[in-house]
Design a protein around this nucleic acid. Structure first.
Length: 315
DNA sequence: AACACGGGCAACCGCGAGCCT
DNA sequence: GAGGCTCGCGGTTGCCCGTGT
């Protein structure tokens, strides 16, 4: 590979958080002379930092045109849209968000948007509904049914044998679910999703995976009412129920629900958008530019209006 | 009041691309 | 064409602070 710049810890250069004095020196120097060569800058500006650190500090924090504060709904939508096309091309995404840095967008994605998508049952990498999670529904439904059945008869059979049966059933269901996750190509994302699902379910600790043998089924809440994220509107849930295995007609609206946080409207393409057409026009095109081939046929129609322009910019 | 925990974010690290000699 | 230098990008780390116990 090509040569690489010297590491910042050479020559005892300072690392870590910047002091106001250092900031001042950097800003004053760049205002007077421009940054020029980043490698030469620290010496010229009397900073005991490496050039890389100076560049990062300037581009991510000190630049005068940086917009700080919360992301607006419009910005959030733009990021989602662009990520669905570009994948983790944060710098490319940042060029469409004036005043926002790639680092800021990346952090916002990792801490907010990614979780939001997972909670909504959407794979944050592909931006497609997570049918692998839905595929595990039968196991969980079976668990719920068994629980209901047992509950209805608990007053008749409360002896140790019944409790052992419950525990064994719960254990088997969990093992099945673990096997399912193990077979999934999205293993890690699945675990994230599971954690998120668990975190959104009251008493969800009872669904933890580490203590399968010790749990007893009668402790479980009825999973079904919670299984689909309560934050996901009913129109989506209904659609999910009827469209498992046929995701082409997903419709997802998130308008006027009881989200407490500052959420934007979430709209998945309506059935009148032929996914295959979008696949060929966008997904294929983006696969060459995106590391993950992360392209989605499942984002709002309005997002696609300027997609062609963006794709032109990419190429 | 003290401690533990988790989320958010700034900063660092390693790699690859582009340019120059 | 090979090798060196610089810059920029994306992934990751670790600190800080708010919140819960």
């Amino acid at each position: 590979m090509m040569g690489r710049s010297a590491s910042c810890d050479e020559n005892g250069l300072k690392k870590g958080p910047w002091t106001p004095q250092e900031d001042q020196k950097l800003v004053q120097y760049i205002e007077r002379h421009g940054h020029g060569s980043w490698r030469a800058l620290p010496k010229l500006a009397d900073l005991n930092r490496c050039g890389k650190s100076c560049r990062l500090r300037w581009t991510n924090y000190l630049r005068p045109d940086i917009k700080r504060g919360k992301f607006s709904q419009e910005e959030e939508s733009t990021i989602l849209h662009l990520h669905s096309i570009l994948g983790n091309k944060w710098s490319a995404i940042a060029t469409h968000l004036p005043g926002r840095t790639d680092n800021e967008i990346k952090n916002f994605w990792n801490t907010h948007l990614k979780k939001k998508l997972i909670q909504m049952g959407i794979d944050p990498t592909t931006h497609q509904p997570r049918i692998d999670i839905f595929a595990s529904l039968p196991q969980l439904i079976a668990l719920a049914s068994l629980k209901d059945l047992l509950e209805s008869t608990t007053h008749l059979i409360l002896d140790d044998q019944a409790l052992r049966l419950q525990a064994e059933a719960a254990r088997l269901a969990k093992l099945q679910y673990l096997q399912l996750l193990g077979q999934s190509p999205n293993g890690i994302a699945d675990m994230e999703a599971l954690n998120l699902i668990s975190s959104s379910v009251p008493n969800s600790s009872q669904f933890s995976l580490g203590d399968a043998t010790s749990q007893q089924l009668h402790q479980y809440p009825t999973p079904l009412p919670h299984l689909l994220d309560p934050q996901v509107p009913s129109s989506f849930q209904t659609s999910v129920n009827s469209e498992i295995g046929n995701c082409s007609s997903f419709t997802m609206l998130r308008q006027g629900d009881n989200q407490t946080e500052n959420s934007s409207s979430w709209i998945l393409p309506s059935p009148n958008i032929p996914p295959t057409a979008i696949d060929t026009s966008l997904c294929n095109a983006s696969s060459s530019s995106s590391n993950n081939g992360a392209a989605s046929p499942y984002w709002p129609e309005l997002y696609f209006d300027n997609s062609i322009n963006i794709m032109h910019e990419i190429s």
